[in-house]
Design a protein around this nucleic acid. Structure first.
Lengths: 195, 195
DNA sequence: ACCATGTCAATAACCGGTTAGATAGATAGA
DNA sequence: TCTATCTATCTAACCGGTTATTGACATGGT
């Protein structure tokens, strides 16, 4: 959001593009693609609406660019480790808690862009993870009561459990963050614990 | 969708209202609130757009009505059982697999209607479930390593794990439905298994 | 001067919501 | 039974505001 700190009066396309990406991320995280307004994005980026169509081709393309950039940033951070899934789940949990926008963006993406080829970065990241899990299984350091895909899906689902709560749950008293984190770590540990 | 099977030429407000609710459910499940078009809903219900505003007040209210009706139907079906959580998760899983619209509607609801009071039916259903879980815990028939809220959240998250996959996962070969169901049941069983 | 960078203003389409009126069926009086 | 009346149900046409998108123009840097 606040990616430019200096007065920076000079024209700088790269910087402007980044401001647009940041503004688009916030706008789309809040309202989704259909609900997001390019007018608001341009205003938040302190530039003209037409620039969006100069730098990106369309509203959809802008969403894709913003989403890809955001996902890439987090992909670098999670640092998947097939030999320590509880720690992986914990890092995922921390990301979702620190940055609620990422789960909302991913949800919008799933709902509004379910067609399309999918992000290459995510696809290759998934494949790498599945390979690591299968290797750990063949080495005997990871349970093979489920196949690798199921394990990855279950772990990620548990890690994001608290981030995808129904609005109805907020009313009830939810545990505090340390308790939630522990629940995630424990759940994954039990899931993959050897018999 | 096909709730009226007979020619049914006569005017029937209840039936028309139901057609609108069904059409709204399909439209909103596909496109969400912001992306849903009342024109399409009216066309699918074979009636005029203005009728929507006669029977319901607004697009948002129509979504709420359609969502509440759909949720209520499934609430009656799940039949929560605090003493057999794997079976509960299995029933949830079957619902999500049989009717993908329910998970999409719930996602839209969470994203686009996160404010608002929440559905009373869901709130009271949650409270009832939490009470049942707490009672099972106090009776010693359910683990108390987590509090009831965490257990419910984790179980529901696991049950919906396969229904909330990223589009990128569809590319990879996902297990078949019986395998997915077993993974859900086993995961919940392990989660709540006594030490 | 020249090009990248950015602004301005217009436009065509669209969308949620409204209004006045038509039509079918029920009701009641004779 | 026949018909005038009434009401719920439904429709066609329209409106004001909003939206994404574009082409012509300005400006700054080098």
């Amino acid at each position: 959001m606040a990616s430019d700190s200096r007065p920076e009066r000079t024209r700088d396309a790269a910087r402007t593009k980044q401001r647009l990406l940041d503004a688009a991320r916030d706008e789309f995280a809040e309202y989704g693609i259909a609900g997001g307004r390019v007018e608001r994005i341009a205003a938040a980026a302190r530039c003209n609406k037409a620039l969006i169509y100069a730098y990106f081709d369309s509203k959809d393309a802008l969403f894709d660019a913003a989403f890809a950039a955001h996902v890439q940033a987090h992909l670098d951070r999670v640092n998947f480790d097939g030999t320590d899934l509880p720690a992986y789940a914990e890092r995922l949990f921390e990301i979702f808690e620190d940055d609620p926008a990422v789960i909302r963006l991913a949800s919008w993406y799933r709902l509004e862009r379910s067609n399309g080829p999918g992000l290459p970065a995510v696809i290759s990241a998934n494949q790498t993870r599945l390979e690591k899990l299968r290797q750990a299984q063949s080495e005997g350091t990871l349970t093979d009561r489920w196949d690798a895909t199921a394990i990855l899906v279950l772990v990620q689902s548990i890690a994001s459990a608290w981030a995808t709560l129904n609005p109805e749950f907020s009313a009830t008293t939810a545990p505090d963050r340390p308790t939630r984190r522990l629940a995630v770590i424990d759940a994954v540990s039990r899931l993959i614990a050897p018999d």
